[in-house]
Computed example of a mutant assay.
Amino acid sequence: MNEYELRVYDEIIEWKRKLKKRSNMLARASKRVQSKVNEMIPEKVHQVMTDAIKNMVKATLTGSNYTTKRNQGSGLTLQQKDELLTEKLTSYRKTAMVEGAGTGAGGLFLGLADFPLLLSIKMKFLFEAASIYGYDSSSYEERLFILHVFQLAFSSDQKRQETLAIIDDWESRKQVLIEMDWKEFQQEYRDYIDLVKMAQLVPGIGAVVGAYANYNLLDQLGETARNAYRLRLLKTPPLS
């Protein structure tokens, strides 16, 4: 009996249950306010922001593909893959903390620069995760999966449920997925991190807030990536 895989399967069930729970009242109220603000923003502005995020993400995906070592988890058990991902996550969290502290200490100007820098760190980590769990991120469908993992980690209750359903049934759903909804992608991501990162722009406390926020955002992404790839590997309970 593979006791580790049995335990992981139970952890996946619990993780999915947790994702289906509603956010706390503050988060829901914040999302309502942000939705109202988004409605007030002219469509042309939304399009500019969407194009900017789309181009930024695609550039990061291309760069990460070239710099990520292939088949890092080849020959490893699931437990060893999980342990390797934990090592990678520890390293990426430290990088994100240093980046957040540096840009946070710089006030408004460098605080704004934190957005693309942190985004690139997150995407690079997801490419590492794909490699560890045995998936080829050079293929279009695997890059699309990476974007859905990212969206699952940083989205509102409703979008999180929709994205979880797609990831949970990826082999079937990927056949009809052609492109991301980039407008929705950028709005969900910005809305999710706005409150977390806002205080980073305040002189004096920006460095501490930036380091702490980036640490937690990477932690959230790490848990999501680990369980999303576990879910693909363990679709049914392991045989005992």
Rank of each mutant, 00 (worst) to 15 (best):
residue 87 E to Q: 14
residue 148 H to Y: 06
residue 209 V to E: 00
residue 207 A to V: 09
residue 13 I to E: 07
residue 120 S to T: 12
residue 230 R to P: 07
residue 226 R to W: 02
residue 1 M to K: 02
residue 93 R to K: 14
residue 159 K to Y: 08
residue 183 K to I: 13
residue 204 G to T: 08
residue 130 A to R: 06
residue 70 R to S: 15
residue 234 L to M: 04
residue 5 E to T: 04
residue 177 L to F: 08
residue 127 F to G: 07
residue 218 L to V: 11
residue 40 M to T: 06
residue 216 N to E: 09
residue 60 T to V: 15
residue 86 T to Q: 13
residue 85 L to W: 04
residue 120 S to Y: 07
residue 74 S to C: 14
residue 15 W to L: 03
residue 165 A to L: 08
residue 174 K to C: 12
residue 115 F to P: 00
residue 124 K to Y: 11
residue 14 E to A: 12
residue 202 V to S: 04
residue 59 A to V: 11
residue 81 K to C: 10
residue 23 S to N: 06
residue 101 A to L: 05
residue 205 I to M: 07
residue 72 Q to C: 09
residue 42 P to E: 05
residue 66 Y to C: 13
residue 178 I to M: 11
residue 217 L to C: 10
residue 137 S to V: 03
residue 231 L to R: 02
residue 113 A to D: 09
residue 43 E to D: 13
residue 192 Y to C: 09
residue 139 S to T: 15
residue 35 S to I: 14
residue 183 K to C: 09
residue 234 L to D: 00
residue 34 Q to S: 14
residue 95 T to V: 11
residue 228 A to V: 06
residue 192 Y to R: 09
residue 129 A to E: 00
residue 49 M to Q: 11
residue 210 G to V: 02
residue 155 S to A: 12
residue 97 M to E: 02
residue 155 S to N: 01
residue 21 K to V: 04
residue 107 G to W: 15
residue 12 I to Y: 05
residue 8 V to T: 00
residue 98 V to P: 04
residue 107 G to L: 13
residue 45 V to N: 06
residue 118 L to R: 09
residue 28 R to P: 05
residue 41 I to S: 00
residue 232 R to K: 11
residue 62 T to K: 06
residue 86 T to S: 14
residue 37 V to E: 08
residue 136 D to G: 01
residue 180 M to C: 06
residue 68 T to D: 05
residue 25 M to F: 15
residue 53 I to L: 12
residue 239 L to H: 00
